[in-house]
């Protein structure tokens, strides 16, 4: 516990802690809608396809700024989503296969560019390779300030548009019938996912960032049947995973923050899977054994009645 206090008082750790909490919070919130719209893999695709965009942004400007990376990643993420919808529309290929194709080709391009950068003499080349697996410790104050703005923006937008996002997640056809611009709202959600992913890449890396989107949302689903509570819980689960990741990695020198956050979030998922009320495995088993018991008792009492009838004859 002493180390937790140390972490709270050290200004550098404070930034990292705040960054990880914000990241967990906003990807948890936006992840709920991605999960419910059956776009769990979209986050993964976007994260992988962000890599070439980040590399190109770095090659063009030679600086490492989260805002520039955001723009680069946003553009290549957008290209990837257009690619996916183009493939599914004009061929018989289904979206899972289309995602597989687009994800791997963008990622491949990203790795090629990354290798290029590392073997050329860009001044500030160290650190870009950290984007593969992330390094939360490399976050500095200005990065976290950007994250704070982005995160506040996403959370406020999801609060204001909660009704609309809920409607297009449940029944987009009906939403269109009511006159809501479903296409625009869907693009907006996709844009938020891109933003959450790009913000998360520095801390967790391209490969793992999708876990922050999906795992808290899936875990939260085990505890509630209400979307509002699910979104809040998912955000809190994400934030908690961020705290645990930062804490463990700051106390032990050789542990990476991002991957530990992801593992913490996986642990939360396992707990939810086992102990969630009603949906959890344990709850299901209890309900089943109770049902079996009542059935047996019913049968027993019926037998007793039959025996009674028989003896009274």
């Amino acid at each position: 516990m002493q180390s937790l206090l140390d972490m709270m008082t050290d200004p550098n750790s404070q930034w990292i802690l705040l960054g990880c909490v914000l990241l967990g919070l906003c990807s948890g919130v936006i992840g709920c809608f991605a999960y419910l719209r059956k776009q769990s893999l979209m986050g993964d695709t976007l994260a992988h396809s962000a890599l070439p965009g980040i590399c190109i942004a770095f090659m063009l400007t030679g600086t490492k700024s989260i805002l520039l990376f955001l723009i680069g990643a946003g553009i290549s993420g957008l290209l990837a989503t257009f690619g996916i919808s183009w493939i599914t529309r004009y061929s018989r290929i289904k979206s899972d296969a289309a995602m597989g194709i687009v994800l791997s080709s963008f990622f491949g391009l990203g790795i090629v560019l990354l290798t290029q950068i590392q073997h050329s003499d860009y001044g500030n080349q160290s650190g870009l390779d950290k984007f593969l697996f992330g390094q939360a410790a490399s976050m500095i104050g200005s990065d976290v300030q950007t994250m704070l703005i982005v995160c506040a923006f996403i959370v406020i937008a999801c609060t204001l548009l909660f009704k609309e996002f809920k409607l297009i997640s449940f029944d987009p056809g009906f939403a269109r019938g009511l006159g809501f611009p479903v296409g625009v709202l869907e693009q907006l959600l996709m844009f938020f996912i891109v933003v959450a992913v790009v913000v998360g890449i520095q801390a967790v890396g391209v490969v793992l960032v999708a876990a922050l989107l999906i795992t808290p949302a899936v875990s939260a689903r085990y505890w509630t049947d209400r979307l509002g509570i699910m979104v809040v819980m998912s955000g809190l689960f994400g934030a908690l995973a961020g705290v645990v990741g930062t804490w463990l990695s700051s106390t032990t020198a050789s542990l990476p923050t991002g991957p530990i956050s992801v593992l913490a979030s996986t642990l939360l998922f396992i707990v939810s899977l086992l102990f969630g009320p009603r949906r959890g495995l344990l709850a299901k088993r209890i309900v089943r054994s109770r049902a079996r018991q009542t059935l047996m008792e019913e049968q027993k009492s019926r037998m007793r009645d039959l025996v009674k009838e028989g003896s009274s004859l």
């Binding site: 419910l36 059956k38 204001l160 548009l161 009704k163 609309e164 809920k166 409607l167 997640s169 449940f170 029944d171 056809g173 009906f174 939403a175 019938g177 009511l178 006159g179 809501f180 689903r221 509630t224 049947d225 209400r226 979307l227 699910m230």
Partner: peptide, 30 residues
């Protein structure tokens, strides 16, 4: 719409779904 057009495992209750019928009249944000 056809009943099969939505996922009924969505985290919401019957009343909430019926209230969606009012969303068009509520307009944005409200």
């Amino acid at each position: 719409p056809q009943r099969e057009s939505v996922d009924w495992d969505f985290p919401t209750n019957a009343l909430d779904v019926v209230m969606m019928g009012r969303y068009g009249r509520l307009g944005w944000f409200r």
